[in-house]
């Protein structure tokens, strides 16, 4: 199954981290990568720039309104994501537990919309 692993975190934790603490974060992400590779496949993943760089679009009466900021303003922000292919939720939970414990992590299965064919650049 394909899962999106969403990472929510208080950005100040990273900003205020010492070099040693940052090294521990790197190691946790490496442990996550290794755990994923041992059990399945990493499709993609990235850290995100802060929520203060976010731009939201929401349409009212069919008119897009572009506003500054994320969907929801919280202390915790979406700080990054991984898209992984793993056998099941228990495996996804197991690998997600490798991530730094200051994170909150949300695991969501991806789905295919019946009758919809995405256009990929290679086709």
């Amino acid at each position: 199954m394909e899962y999106l692993v969403l990472i929510a975190t208080d950005p100040s934790v990273w900003e205020e981290a010492t070099p040693e603490e940052r090294q521990a974060f790197h190691e946790a992400h490496h442990a996550f990568d290794r755990a994923v590779l041992a059990r399945g496949r990493k499709i993609s993943g990235a850290a995100l720039a802060g929520a203060d760089t976010a731009t939201s679009l929401r349409a009212t009466n069919g008119e897009w309104a572009v506003t500054d900021g994320p969907f929801v303003e919280l202390t915790e922000q979406i700080g990054g994501f991984y898209l992984v292919d793993l056998p099941d939720l228990d495996t996804a939970i197991e690998v997600a537990k490798q991530l730094p414990t200051s994170y909150a992590v949300e695991i969501r299965p991806t789905i295919e919309i019946e009758g919809y064919e995405p256009i990929s650049s290679t086709s």
Binding site: D90, I107, P109
Partner: peptide
């Protein structure tokens, strides 16, 4: 939908 397995951990 979430892929909770019918399995013993």
């Amino acid at each position: 939908a979430a892929g909770i397995p019918y399995a013993v951990p």
